[in-house]
Amino acid sequence: MLDYSEKVIEEFRNPKNMGEIKDADGIGQVGNPTCGDMMWIYIKVRDGILTDVKFKTFGCVAAIATSSKVTQMVLNKPIDEALKITNKAVAEALDGLPTVKMHCSLLAEEGIKAAIEDYFKKKDKKEG
């Protein structure tokens, strides 16, 4: 097996915030051209704060662990802070990832950003 940190393994074994949000305010659907994996992030926003975040992921151990981690990192955070999340920060929060698995954490960053983007798009439409 790859040399995953204990935190990655723990996160993978007991992922948090998995599932969907039925009436999500934003949904980010991102894919990974490297190996064909997928991550969907659902968010609920209230007063500029991410009050709920959920994920669904089709991917490896690192992809699932980073999905779970990123949802916890942005939960209850203001949008502008969530937008600053980088894949490096997610990987670091898990004590790092094997080099071949760094690209999986990219999905986590992109997923959150895509969900927020979607939220703004929907909001513009509503208000527009």
Binding site: M1, R13, G59, C60, C104
Partner: peptide, 21 residues
């Protein structure tokens, strides 16, 4: 890789042809 890892937690050693693995 995910399946293989969960099986490994149970002490079961197998392999996978997955890209991620």
């Amino acid at each position: 890789e995910g399946m293989l890892t969960f099986l490994d937690f149970e002490g079961i050693s197998v392999s996978s042809g997955s890209a991620c693995a």
